[in-house]
Amino acid sequence: EWCEALHSFTAETSDDLSFKRGDRIQILERLDSDWCRGRLQDREGIFPAVFVRPCP
């Protein structure tokens, strides 16, 4: 499952995944309604679900 970043997100901890608006992120797991775990290029981490939308 893939999503597109609606806003940029800067990691606040070593577990977070930083990304820029427009990045396509592979969703690996939905942790709960607020957080997802994903992969961007060679990095993995968690990020807020409200920062992304599903890719068509």
Rank of each mutant, 00 (worst) to 15 (best):
W35E: 05
F9S: 05
D34H: 12
S14N: 14
C55T: 10
L40F: 14
L40S: 07
R37T: 02
D34C: 11
F9C: 11
D23K: 03
I25Q: 00
G45A: 04
W35Q: 14
R43F: 04
P54E: 12
F19M: 04
F47P: 02
S14F: 09
T13V: 07
I27S: 02
G45I: 06
E44R: 03
A5N: 04
A49T: 13
E4M: 07
P54M: 12
R37I: 11
E29T: 04
L40M: 05
A49H: 06
D34P: 05
G38M: 04
F47G: 01
G45F: 07
R30Q: 15
R24T: 09
E12F: 09
L40Y: 06
A49D: 06
W35V: 12
A11S: 11
R39C: 09
D42T: 08
R24F: 11
I46H: 10
L17K: 04
L31C: 09
G45L: 04
T13G: 14
G38N: 02
D32R: 06
S33H: 14
L17V: 01
V50I: 10
K20H: 08
R24E: 06
F47Y: 00
K20S: 13
A11W: 02
E44M: 09
S8W: 01
I46M: 07
R24D: 00
F9W: 14
F47L: 05
S18G: 09
I27V: 13
W35P: 00
C55D: 11
C3L: 05
G22L: 01
E12S: 14
Q41T: 05
D32Y: 02
W35A: 07
L31F: 10
I25N: 03
D42C: 07
D42V: 04
S8I: 01
L28R: 01
D32L: 00
D23M: 03
T13A: 12
F51Q: 06
E44A: 05
L17W: 01
D23R: 02
P56T: 09
D42E: 12
S8G: 09
F51T: 07
D42I: 00
I25T: 01
V52P: 01
V50F: 05
E12T: 14
D42L: 05
T13H: 14
I27T: 01
I46C: 11
G22H: 05
L17Y: 05
I46F: 14
D16R: 15
A5S: 05
E1D: 15
D15W: 07
F19D: 03
Q41A: 11
P56A: 07
I46Y: 09
W2R: 08
L28V: 13
D15N: 11
I27Q: 00
V50K: 15
G38V: 00
R43V: 08
C36E: 00
S18I: 07
L28Y: 06
